[in-house]
């Protein structure tokens, strides 16, 4: 003796689940995950599992979404090491171009300042940053600025979508640190 509305309500659950899976943007997917949580709580309540519905609403919707939002926000970030002294026009334009390219892939760009050249390279070696930007100071105009990137996928994205003739992109491999720094 199952009523007809139970079938309709249950059909909403795979529908919203498919919406979560097919969503590309992580933040939109988070919101739809909330919708899925609400619908799932409804389905569990309809099928008579009140305790499961309560858990789904409190843990599955509230806690999981908050934790996921923090995780997505802190993981989708590119840290770019730069020198404090760099203020040139070309650099600003390049950074803006990077921001646009990264925002297409739902990433943020974060600039990290360093005092001198050695610190910058050391930071890349220590994996403190994902990429560094090396300006060429005391050379002729023909020499281009350089960006060193240590993550191959990031290099592919930037190489394919970033159109800046002024800056050469180089992918470098950084050996794993043998000792753990305190």
């Amino acid at each position: 003796m199952v009523d007809s509305y139970v079938y309709i309500i249950t059909a909403l659950l795979p529908l919203t689940a498919a919406m979560v899976v097919l969503q590309g943007n992580p933040y939109h997917a988070l919101i739809i995950r909330g919708i899925l949580g609400a619908v799932a709580a409804l389905v569990y309540a309809v099928l008579g599992a009140a305790d499961v519905a309560l858990t789904e609403a409190l843990v599955g919707t509230m806690l999981a979404i908050t934790l996921y939002a923090v995780a997505v926000r802190s993981s989708l970030v590119v840290r770019l090491g730069v020198l404090q002294a760099v203020e040139s026009q070309g650099f600003q334009a390049w950074v803006e171009g990077c921001r646009t390219v990264f925002s297409k892939h739902y990433m943020r760009l974060e600039l990290v300042n360093y005092l001198n050249d050695e610190d910058l390279r050391q930071a890349l070696n220590d994996k403190e940053v994902h990429a560094i930007y090396l300006p060429q100071h005391h050379t002729t105009e023909a020499v281009q600025d350089q960006a060193l990137i240590r993550i191959p996928r990031l290099y592919e994205i930037m190489q394919a979508e970033l159109t800046s003739p002024k800056t050469t992109l180089t992918c470098v491999t950084v050996a794993d640190a043998t000792e753990v720094k305190v």
């Binding site: 309560l54 409190l58 509230m62 939002a69 923090v70």
Partner: peptide, 23 residues
Amino acid sequence: IGVVGVLILSVGNAALMLMAHII
């Protein structure tokens, strides 16, 4: 089930506010 419905109604909206601020 009724108690669960009221609880979800009164507590569940807090998640929405948290999320609005994070976004």
